[in-house]
Design a protein around this nucleic acid. Structure first.
Lengths: 189, 189
DNA sequence: CAGAGTTGTCAACGACTGTTGACGCGTTCC
DNA sequence: GGAACGCGTCAACAGTCGTTGACAACTCTG
């Protein structure tokens, strides 16, 4: 009997996928072993190869879950507000840690997956964002905006600076908005 | 005969240290094996344990080389200019890749060294920077400045966005200065 | 010269990695 | 009933990892 779309108890495949996203996205591809994932999912290691063809296949399956990047780059007028919003509520509202920004940061360093992440950000994030922005120096403004967003994510989630981490949402929003607005104004005046 | 301070041909210890800095700082602690370093240095693997006590000791020896952090956080008036300068000419003017910012970015993710890096940045960079800045919201402005600097470093060196990478130095300086200035103005008016 | 101390070479260890194939169990289909 | 298939369990593989200790070659000291 095929599972259909009923959500009764998660299939083994889904258990693996959930555990893989949780671990890959927070610790990075090379820093997580298949046995870690299997143990977290309560499943045998060998099933990874069966369902996903291997470690790389499992990782790419977690990437396939990401909603279209265009969703992060919404209306051309409200890019700033959208950036702040997408930063706060990135993709999966589940665990606070498993969001797309964190995943990109954690895996860009990886010797095996860095190249893929790089392409994803350039072609799926920077380019469409520049297109939406339009006007003078669109590419540079888009790049600066991403620098501001990723920089803030880095300081909060990875470096965990006292001045930024664990602050009320409103304060964080104001900080991000301030830096992002400056990025978008680059080249004006 | 001890080597003294003569710089004739580098000792085995120095060969290891140089190769270790090159590799650890660009690829990250966990992504580099001692055999990689030994091969790059043209030296046997076992000598790492002899000279540095192990992998961790070798990594920490490369950190000990970093000049006082205070050098990155100079006079209180010219913090912005200093930040830009330290970003462009970070520490060791040797290889373009082996600078302190790149090293911090590459190793903050690491499961074993992340904690140490985090402490270094908080206590050695964010705190003294906030002290130098002074005034209202000093800690937050320092944190935003670091977010801007690290964000730019990330986009240029790791994500390698087309709009930022391989651009003339003057242009890069202007971009960094723009974003950093905005960070320092946070909370004003 | 004899001895001590330093320095480099080599083989091996236990632990961990991703991956594979054999095997047993249960359900489904003819 | 028997065959086919999906699904999970287990043991084992080849490879890499950091680390260790034995051994040889060398320099310096007495």
């Amino acid at each position: 009997m095929l599972n259909g779309d009923m959500d009764q108890s998660p299939s083994t495949r889904d258990k693996l996928l959930t555990a893989a996203r949780e671990l890959f996205w927070t610790r990075g591809y090379s820093n997580v072993s298949l046995r870690d994932i299997a143990k977290s999912a309560g499943v045998d290691v060998a099933l990874v190869s069966r369902y996903f063809g291997g470690k790389q296949g499992l990782f790419e399956a977690t990437l396939a879950e990401i909603p279209t990047w265009e969703a992060l780059v919404v209306d051309p007028d409200g890019v700033l507000a959208a950036a702040v919003a997408s930063f706060a509520h990135p993709c999966d509202p589940g665990t606070d840690e498993t969001n797309v920004f964190t995943m990109l940061l954690t895996n860009i360093i990886d010797p095996e997956m860095g190249g893929k992440i790089r392409c994803m950000v350039q072609r799926g994030l920077a380019d469409p964002l520049a297109r939406k922005l339009g006007g003078n120096r669109a590419e540079e403004r888009a790049a600066l905006l991403l620098a501001a967003l990723f920089g803030m994510a880095l300081m909060r989630k990875n470096f965990r600076l006292d001045a930024l981490a664990n602050k009320p949402q409103a304060e964080t929003d104001a900080q991000i908005r301030h830096l992002a607005a400056a990025a978008l104004e680059y080249g004006d005046v």
